[in-house]
C-alpha cells in the first residue's frame, strides 16, 4: 500500500457523501442517477483498496460485478427516464407523485 488504508476510506466516504448529497438534494432525475453512480464508484474504490490491502484479487472481481450491475441499472433507469419524460414532458421528480397516499 502506498497510502494508509484509512486515508483511502476517507476519500471513498467523501465521494460517497457527495453522491448521497446529489441524490438527496437534486430534483433532476438525471442528477439523481448521477449521484447513484458516484456512490457506486465510491464503493468500488473501497473494494479495490481492500483488494490491495490484503493482496487478494477477489475485491477487484467484485468491482467487475459492480460495473456490470451498474450498467444494467443505468440502462433500465435511463429507459425509465425517457418514458417518464414522454409522459409528463419533465424530469423533475416533484412531478411524479402518483404514489401519494
Amino acid at each position: 500500500m502506498i497510502v494508509p488504508f484509512e486515508h483511502l476510506l476517507v476519500l471513498a466516504s467523501l465521494l460517497f457523501f457527495l453522491g448521497l448529497m446529489a441524490v438527496l438534494v437534486r430534483r433532476n432525475l438525471i442528477m439523481i442517477l448521477i449521484g447513484v453512480e458516484i456512490m457506486l464508484n465510491a464503493a468500488g474504490l473501497v473494494l479495490v483498496g481492500a483488494s490491495a490491502l490484503w493482496q487478494q484479487v477477489d475485491g477487484q472481481v467484485l468491482v467487475i460485478f459492480l460495473m456490470a450491475l451498474t450498467s444494467a441499472e443505468v440502462s433500465i433507469s435511463l429507459a425509465m427516464v425517457v418514458y417518464l419524460n414522454h409522459r409528463k414532458q419533465t424530469v423533475d421528480v416533484r412531478a411524479f407523485n402518483e404514489l401519494r397516499g
Binding site: 441524490v23 438527496l24 430534483r27 421528480v93 411524479f96 407523485n97 402518483e98 404514489l99 397516499g101
Partner: peptide
C-alpha cells in the same frame, strides 16, 4: 396519520433511506 408519510415525493423516500443509513 401514516398516510401522510407517503407523500409520493421520491426525494422524501430517498431521505428515508439516508436516515436509515
Amino acid at each position: 396519520y401514516m398516510r401522510q408519510l407517503a407523500t409520493g415525493q421520491l426525494s422524501f423516500y430517498l431521505q428515508g433511506f439516508a436516515w436509515g443509513l
